[in-house]
Design a protein around this nucleic acid. Sequence first.
DNA 1: TTGTGGAATTAACCCAAGTTAAAAGTCATG
DNA 2: CATGACTTTTAACTTGGGTTAATTCCACAA
Lengths: 175, 175
Amino acid sequence: MKLNEFIAINGTSLTKEAGEYLFRQGDHDQSLYIVKSGLLKAYYLSADGKENIKSFILPGSNIGSLMASYAGKPSTFSLVCLKPCELTVLQFAALYEASRTDAEISAAIVDFLLGFGIKKEVREYELLCLSAEDRYKKLVENTPEILNLVTQNEIARYLGITPVGLSRIKKRLAS
Amino acid sequence: MKLNEFIAINGTSLTKEAGEYLFRQGDHDQSLYIVKSGLLKAYYLSADGKENIKSFILPGSNIGSLMASYAGKPSTFSLVCLKPCELTVLQFAALYEASRTDAEISAAIVDFLLGFGIKKEVREYELLCLSAEDRYKKLVENTPEILNLVTQNEIARYLGITPVGLSRIKKRLAS
DNA sequence: TTGTGGAATTAACCCAAGTTAAAAGTCATG
DNA sequence: CATGACTTTTAACTTGGGTTAATTCCACAA
């Protein structure tokens, strides 16, 4: 079976308003979410209340907690809608089962996970090797569309710095 | 076929001395390496010659450049032996092919990639959310054995700081 | 035993980013 | 258009970690 077909059969539709949560840090939500429209953010909240943004999720991409879905542990991050969202929801277990019995689905999952791995490696590289300023420059260069979708506050939290810090970086680059 | 069998049939043995490279940043090495014994490090070298360590690879784990193997791009990091190593080498393409035709192998790959994804997410979390000091404390707590295997210099480069910085952190924690 | 070379520590100085707080800008809503 | 709630900028001060260089510590070889 094609992955698309599988999703059409097994997925359910869901709409959410801006501000609504799909799951929160600590939850055991074992769903995968496919974004049809809207915008979401995945973020960590530290013990002292500081927010760090893991990623923004745009239409066409997917998100879910691997920790909760595959490892059976509480999710390490929260997932919230920044804009009204239309989603397709799939149970991780259903897809995982299908990957065990259907070669076409298994192949699609392998490709998805390989692509996912590369994305994670890129993010790891940026956080390990680049300065905040370089990360900002790279963001402006590679995905400028994000800049119009979220506040600067959120860009900063994605880059791993504070809004004040990002404001200073912008000033530095402008001169 | 079991993944183990596949590796036994398709893998080739390789031994390397400390200091020898398996590939260098920029290479298009499309091999996967399974570590039987020894110790390796994967690291990025920045334009101004600074080293940042992506990971240490211990016996029982695997490594290869996803960028080179799957995306066909130059590897973003180098892979070098820190101790003499016994390795099994596998061509990524062979394994990928096999995953397309053999359900058991495909299942094993899916599990491997899911585990890999979780590891990358943990590292991403640490780099995004924790201070260098917290990252060091977590390392001491979770994988203290590493501390005896590599120099403090290398621990520092793995944590994303300089050896001088790490020395200060240790002093701070000792008092 | 004594060099010798790398590893780790320490010191002095510097800078990027954090923190706090105030000011200025932006925008939606009554 | 006025109010209030954010968002962004700016300023002043603090701090963690970088840089450079000197010093101390080892381990190992001659």
